[in-house]
Nucleic acid binder design. Structure first.
Lengths: 216, 216, 216, 216
DNA sequence: GATGAATGAGTCTTCATTCAT
DNA sequence: CATGAATGAAGACTCATTCAT
């Protein structure tokens, strides 16, 4: 048994992708991610050099490539972590017992809060959208997020709680409102995060009650 | 008089931005802008080199630096042109005689159409937001656009055509909806530009009729 | 007509591979090739850096990449030039009116002389054989060289001037003798190039008269 | 005595080359040599990294530097082992009672067989010739090999068994034939090792019977 | 106006080697 | 003996920009 385990971990250690990290190694990796996230958000992905990152942390260049196979991979790791974390937060905010509209509202509040807590990541995602190499990843994440929310919108439609009929478009519109409001008012000291969240909720509910143009 | 002109043209020749161009020169400049816009949108600003642009057009490097003092200036010129053109289109769509809600609706339709006609520019603006060097310019344009729209929203509020009270936030929300829907559905062949425009209008009107958070 | 020519050369200048060089450009290219050949032969391909080459010539790094797309491409260009030149020399040495054995002898003399004149290239070819990236090219050149010589050997066999029967092996053996003797005695001051050439000829003729083992 | 041993073993432990190894240690060392030989032959000495070797074996970097003080030393060890082994095989093939020509023939057969059994090493030796750091070693080995063979050639000349007079050149020519034929036909499946060996013997005997340049 | 050539600082990445554990 | 982590000099290559012609 002991032997089996040893053999297995040695096998894994041959694959750099799944390199087994010690506690100290895991800390270093996080340190790089944290520092790079800040720099990327401040200066942009391309203008930030690997040299700048390792110098900022105070380690040699080799350290970077011990943990990440390239600058690109690091950025992807940051995005992946961000998407996972945001989704986790959103789902943690949901009360399965609440009605669809309440679940949507809570999801919006969670999103606003998360972005307020991670302003750098919002910038990074915006950039990623514009770069061919990262855009697919963002689109995929975006599709998942849309699906997550759309489920509740469809329920609301089925329960006749709302007047919209096109769940997908309404969902996208709601995401657009939330994203935009949060981004724009992030550095506006006259509004608190909660103000923004409540406004986003209110407007999104407005969207769901929109009267179809044809019906007027 | 003679002296004035000489002094002025000497001054101008130092500033490539306002250099007097012959017709042929103006064409070349546009050719560079057009080609670069496409490339920047496809590959990103940083990954696209000046060499790539001039090679793509089939001219020497000197040509580029005759018309633009730097790659950065070219990008700024693209953004400036884009913002001017969008604003011109939006204002051309407004009927001063129509009521506030109709003016807002027409503005939204014009925006969607413009983005559909210039998809590359949308990507470029998105990128510019994430780069310190260009972000101020975008923020400024964004502020102007917001002010433009907000005027009509405030009128609508004053005329008691809508239920919202916070004109600025509502405006931002509407811009968010329009931007997001247009971007997301630009490459979705199951929806026409007009479908998207109507959906945006409908949702924005929904936003304006949103019932204040006091709902229960 | 004038216009057609211009259009065509502009088209070519878009393809870096076939970049049209001015006289000055062609000289620079040759300068790089000459210098690099010496360095590669002295220090080896891998241990010689591009920086070393451009520093040795006294130009900036960009110059190198203006003429060659990579260090690898430079090396390939050197090998290609060498193979072409050697072949040209060998064929210039042949008197079509002479008999097969004399043609073979002259070919051997030409080879020895060429190698004596370009000692660096011999080293480079030897290295190229050992590197996966270059070996195919050398094998191809080697096959061509073998075919060139084998033609005369086959004629000699047909004319019953020699006793060997396996033209291919005999040819390879002759090439082996010539290559080895030239390389080994290149720096041996007690032998002149002509001594080596004559010895090579003599031994090669011995090979062609070898009595098949089975016959003794 | 005790002191001598201590002093000696301390001295040895500083020189990794002659470090006393346990049986398991000796195995590890061989494992590294075997793996590295293959990789060096496949990819080249410089392009093969130490990391690649230790990863391929599945051990840490420390292991490598426990057995070899540097990558260079490893390569030298490979070459030394190869030269020793080849010479051992050649001499084992010799029947002291046979006449000079038979001894030469057997030596050639042994060489061909050895190279066929160790194709990687042939490539490595070829590379070593082209690198300043290893060339001296190869030249030395080559000189020894030449001397070994030349002894028999001189005997054959003295016994008037052959017509050549320049023993050194003839020896080099024979080595050239053997090396070249073996290398070229190693991967030619239409010829067996024995075919190649017999052809080499035949051609070498032809060389020894070559008629001095005075032929007309 | 326009071109080919040149610059050289700066980019990402590799790798032999060392060392604390 | 062995490992994971770290070092940092050095490497190949890019690119915005300049300039002589």
């Amino acid at each position: 048994m002991q032997q089996n385990l040893t053999a297995q971990s040695r096998l894994l250690s041959v694959l750099p992708v799944t390199r087994q990290l010690t506690d100290r190694g895991e800390e270093r990796r996080q340190q790089i991610i944290t520092f790079a996230t800040k720099r990327f958000a401040e200066k942009g992905y391309h203008p930030t050099s690997v040299a700048e990152i390792v110098d900022g942390i105070g380690v040699g260049k080799g350290v970077f490539y011990w943990y990440f196979s390239s600058k690109e991979e690091l950025f992807i790791a940051i995005l992946r972590d961000a998407q996972l974390d945001l989704r986790r937060c959103q789902q943690a905010a949901l009360d399965p017992a609440a009605d669809a509209l309440d679940r949507i509202s809570e999801g919006i509040r969670a999103s606003v809060r998360w972005t307020a807590d991670h302003p750098d990541l919002a910038v990074l995602v915006a950039f990623a959208t514009t770069d061919e190499r990262f855009a697919p990843m963002i689109r995929k994440g975006s599709r998942i997020a849309t699906t997550d929310v759309m489920r509740h919108v469809e329920e609301a439609i089925a329960a006749e709680l709302v007047s919209v009929t096109d769940a997908e478009m309404a969902t996208r519109a709601m995401i657009g409102i939330t994203t935009t409001l949060t981004r724009e008012f992030l550095h506006d000291s006259t509004r608190t995060t909660d103000d923004v969240a409540e406004a986003a909720v209110e407007f999104c509910l407005g969207v769901l009650q929109a009267i179809s143009a044809g019906r007027s």
